Amino acid sequence: MSDPWPPGDRVKTYTAPGTAVRFDARRCAHAEECVKGLPEVFDPARRPWIDPSLADPDAIAEVVARCPSGALHAAVDGVWAKEGGPTAITALADGPLEVRGDFEVDGRREVRALLCRCGDSANKPWCDGTHVRKGWRARSG
C-alpha cells in the first residue's frame, strides 16, 4: 500500500489487514472527532494510540473523514480516501479557517485543513491550537 503522504518526523502510519491510518501530529488540532467516533481504535491513553485492527475499515474511514485538521487519513484495501469536491472555506468562531475540498497548501495536495487565523501558530500555516491558549477572538465588522 503506497502512502501518498510520505512520513516525516511526526508522521506515522498504523496498519491492519485491509486498512491503514496515517497520523501527522503537527496537524492535529485535538478536535477529538476520532476519539469520540471510535474510542476503541483511537485511544490517547494507549501506546500505540491508534489500532486499526479494532474496527471495520469502512467505519474507520468514515470517522477519519471527520478529522477537521487533516491530521488523519485512511486507506481501505490499499486505496487512500480522497474526499475532494468543491473547495469550501469556513472561518470557525474565534478559531482557524476550516478548508475542505480539493486544494493545495504549501505545495501539497490537501482535502482537509485547519489554517491559522490568529497568527500565533508555531506550525504555520496549520493551526496548532495556540488561539485557545491565548484567548484569541476574531474581530467583528
Rank of each mutant, 00 (worst) to 15 (best):
D94R: 02
W5G: 00
V79C: 00
G8F: 01
T13V: 15
K124T: 13
T90M: 02
K82Y: 02
R108I: 01
R139M: 00
G85I: 15
R66S: 13
L72V: 13
R100K: 14
T15M: 04
Y14F: 15
K82A: 06
G101R: 09
A88Q: 13
L54P: 00
G37E: 12
W49L: 02
A113I: 09
N123Q: 14
A55T: 06
L72N: 09
A113N: 11
H131D: 11
L92A: 04
W126K: 04
G135M: 09
L54D: 03
M1T: 10
G129S: 07
A138N: 01
V76Q: 04
A29C: 14
G8R: 02
P48Q: 04
L54I: 01
A138R: 12
E32W: 11
A31I: 01
G107Y: 02
G135F: 03
L92Q: 12
P39H: 07
S121C: 08
P48C: 04
S69K: 11
R133K: 15
R47L: 02
L92F: 00
V105L: 15
P57E: 05
G95S: 15
D9C: 00
A31M: 10
A55K: 09
G95Y: 02
W80S: 09
K12D: 09
G18S: 04
C28M: 12
K124C: 02
R139Q: 04
P4S: 03
I60V: 13
D43N: 11
R133E: 07
K124P: 05
E110Q: 15
R22T: 12
A88H: 12
P125M: 03
A122K: 12
G78M: 02
S121T: 10
V35F: 04
S140E: 08
W49V: 00
R26W: 08
P57D: 10
L114C: 15
A31T: 10
W80F: 14
L38S: 11
S69D: 10
H73Y: 07
W80Q: 10
T87Y: 06
A75R: 09
P86K: 15
I60E: 09
Y14G: 13
R112Q: 13
H30M: 13
A75E: 05
M1P: 11
V132G: 00
F103R: 06
S69V: 09
L115V: 10
P48M: 03
V111S: 14
A81M: 10
P39I: 12
V21A: 12
P125H: 03
E62M: 12
T90N: 04
P7K: 01
F103G: 08
E40S: 10
A16C: 08
L38A: 05
N123S: 15
T15Q: 11
D24P: 14
G141T: 04
S2K: 14
V111C: 01
D94P: 11
C116N: 08
R47F: 03
R26T: 15
V41M: 10
G135Y: 05
F103D: 03
F23I: 07
C127V: 07
R112V: 01
V64H: 12
W136T: 08
P39W: 07
E110A: 09
S140A: 04
A81K: 11
P96H: 00
C116R: 06
D77C: 01
A20V: 05
G18M: 03
D43G: 00
D128V: 05
G119M: 06
R117G: 09
P6Y: 00
R22L: 14
D120Q: 13
W80A: 06
V64M: 14
R117Y: 02
A45K: 13
F103L: 06
L54W: 00
